[in-house]
Simulated assay, not measured.
Amino acid sequence: MDGDLVLKWLSFRGHGRLSDVTSSVAALMEGPPHAKTNAARAYLRRLEVLGHLDLLWPESKWQIRPTVLTQIPGSSAFALVIGQRTAELEERLEAEAVLHKVRAPDTGTTTLGDPGTLLLEYDSEAELSEIAANAGAGFIPCAASSLAANLPLLVPGPRAGGPNTYGSAVEMFNVFQREFTHVEAFRRDGLYKQIVNGRWQYWLLRSGLWSSIGYAEGMCLTMSEVDSQYLQFEILEDAEDPIGTLHVNAGLPLPVQHRQALALCSGVSPVKTTGGPWTYHNVPSSVALAVARSIHQHLKVR
């Protein structure tokens, strides 16, 4: 089964429990059970970043997103189709305009490829909005730019009590070794984690105050204090808002909304070579800057 069939199957299901969909996708992967489960979770996260579904981790649920047509930055001829995808939808879109399916590049991270990218030809924003309405889809002028413009400045989360002294082992992120290590005492400022009810929970300790936080958000805040050179922007098309390629150091995990803003610039997942950075294509300078500012990073332009 390929990525297109997986997305159509998810579109047919619509929603469900995360454990069920993870098990189903894991059955398509290769390797030992634990590795297959991890690969399935990573694959579902990629589909979320591509705008096809939402993963509701606190509720242990998932749901497909409604179909949306949205413009691609730097292009006045092609729009991206994201969200729910069915054979009937594709037929309705093809009846309205020329539809292209572009095979997704190999990300090298799983045995299951991403769904192909659906691109729709259009002549004007008004026409694109009309096509969406006639096909029963939503319309967003440019989802990538909209998401980027609304990215918040990352700050510690709500106040919390911190790790449970009598719970499972506690680990702290070592910024010099770039890994979590076991600690007996947790009094130094930093990012901590502990397994609670079978899942990792994360906290930030700053000036004696604990805050709960997500993994990626905690890593961005922690790493920004020691290094703000994790993002490099390579300009490929000079314009009022230059278009280029954004390279993100693999040691810096980005929050979901930041990855979505970047991935929806092209409609494809970022690519990564062994030992290299994550690379996002067709990114406008404004989007790259918004991402960098949100995570307290300096955008190095070359």
Rank of each mutant, 00 (worst) to 15 (best):
D4V: 06
V6P: 00
V6N: 01
L7K: 04
F12C: 08
H15A: 15
S19G: 08
D20M: 09
T22Y: 04
S23W: 11
S24T: 11
A27N: 07
L28D: 02
M29N: 00
M29E: 12
M29A: 09
E30N: 15
K36A: 15
A42T: 11
Y43K: 05
L44A: 13
L47I: 11
L47G: 08
L47K: 07
L50N: 03
L50K: 00
G51V: 03
L56V: 13
L56H: 11
W57C: 10
P58M: 05
E59L: 07
W62G: 02
I64S: 01
V68C: 15
V68K: 07
L69T: 03
Q71W: 08
I72Y: 09
G74E: 00
G74R: 02
S76M: 12
L80E: 07
L80R: 14
V81D: 03
Q84K: 14
L89T: 08
E90Q: 09
E90F: 05
E94R: 15
A97Q: 08
V98Y: 11
R103N: 12
G108M: 00
L112W: 04
G113H: 09
P115K: 00
P115Q: 01
G116S: 07
L118E: 06
E125N: 12
L128R: 01
E130V: 10
A135I: 00
A135V: 01
G136C: 05
A137I: 02
S145H: 12
S146C: 09
A148N: 04
L151Q: 01
L154R: 05
P158R: 09
A160H: 02
G162H: 05
G162Y: 03
T165S: 14
Y166M: 14
Y166D: 14
M172Y: 12
N174H: 09
N174F: 07
Q177M: 12
E179V: 08
F180A: 05
H182M: 13
A185Y: 13
R187P: 01
R188F: 11
D189F: 00
K193S: 11
Q194K: 04
N197D: 14
G198W: 05
R199W: 06
Y202F: 13
Y202P: 12
L204P: 04
L205T: 10
R206D: 15
R206P: 10
S207P: 05
S212Q: 11
I213R: 03
E217R: 03
G218Q: 03
M219T: 06
V226G: 07
S228L: 10
Q229K: 14
Y230V: 09
Y230M: 13
F233M: 10
F233D: 04
L236F: 09
E237G: 11
D241F: 02
P242T: 01
T245E: 13
L246S: 11
N249L: 00
L252G: 05
L254E: 00
P255S: 03
V256L: 13
Q260R: 15
A261I: 00
L262A: 05
L264M: 10
S266C: 10
S266Q: 09
S266W: 05
G267N: 09
G267T: 08
S269G: 10
K272W: 08
T273Y: 15
Y280L: 01
S285F: 14
A288D: 07
L289H: 14
S294L: 04
I295L: 01
H298R: 15
L299M: 01
K300N: 13
V301N: 02
